[in-house]
């Protein structure tokens, strides 16, 4: 059976060599070529390929963001020139990675691994969003969140994110009166957000500190945070301690 593959790279020549190698190998059918991240997410959603060759630095969405937005079971092979942080992530979860320029032999090996993985029905150990978190250089915080809504890709800049709410296996990202669902754990997004701007005020809530209008008592032991748009979020006792540290006593 031929594997159905999509090539994603913003450089024409980089796509060209991959196409040439794959044509020669004969066991792969290229169903689409994409020059940026948006196209890639759309193509993967519509064409449901087995295999994705993914560059990292691209216009619109980078390779990791694309990875966050596509649904398994797509085997991803990263193709990149050099990225010290990415290498760490490849070890964690991608099928394989090809360092440009690569040989036909090396590509054959990557294809072999992809076949082996696709025939093995075991779910992947790591979620794509967690993988993307692992790939982020230490000390660098998330500047935007990408969410897929059907075939649409929404980009939420961190400054426009009001609060995050845990909903079973999903998180709801609230921004400008709308909310977006994303499959990720609340702890994993907490680790990606700048702790000076966002605080986990409750087991299920992370709030943007700039949005808090006031804190009101609720029951004897708990409080609610009232946001500028009127939303009310529960604040646990440890959450309140955290807020006092970040915003000072007079909140």
């Amino acid at each position: 059976m031929k594997l159905r593959a999509i090539i994603v790279d913003d450089e024409e020549l980089a796509r060209q060599i991959l196409r040439e190698y794959l044509d020669k190998a004969g066991e792969v059918e290229i169903v689409a070529e994409c020059a940026n991240g948006f196209e890639a997410v759309k193509a993967v959603g519509e064409l449901r390929p087995d295999l994705l060759f993914l560059d990292i630095q691209m216009p619109k969405l980078d390779g990791f963001e694309v990875l966050e937005l596509i649904d398994p079971p797509v085997a991803v092979i990263f193709v990149t020139a050099y990225d010290q942080y990415a290498l760490k992530a490849f070890d964690a979860a991608a099928v394989d990675y090809l360092l440009k320029p690569f040989s036909t032999d090396r590509l054959a090996k990557a294809l072999e691994r992809a076949r082996a993985l696709l025939s093995d029905p075991q779910p992947r150990a790591l979620q794509a969003s967690d993988l993307a978190a692992a790939a982020r250089p230490p000390g660098q915080m998330l500047e935007r969140v990408v969410v897929k809504d059907g075939t649409r890709v929404n980009i939420i800049p961190i400054a426009k994110l009001d609060y995050v709410e845990a909903q079973d296996d999903y998180i709801a990202l609230h921004s400008e009166k709308k909310h977006y669902l994303k499959q990720q754990t609340i702890s994993s997004i907490e680790a990606q957000l700048d702790p000076a701007r966002f605080a986990r005020v409750h087991r299920s809530y992370i709030v943007n500190l700039e949005r808090i209008a006031r804190i009101e008592p609720y029951t004897k032991d708990s409080r609610v945070a009232v946001l500028q748009d009127g939303s009310q979020l529960p604040v646990s006792r440890s959450g309140y301690t955290k807020l006092k540290e970040l915003l000072g006593e007079n909140i």
Binding site: E11, A14, Q16, I17, A81, Y82, K100
Partner: peptide
Amino acid sequence: NPHFLFNCLNSISALTSS
């Protein structure tokens, strides 16, 4: 920049046949 160098070599690699 190593990124520049490797990308160049990749382009050359692609052009050798085409």
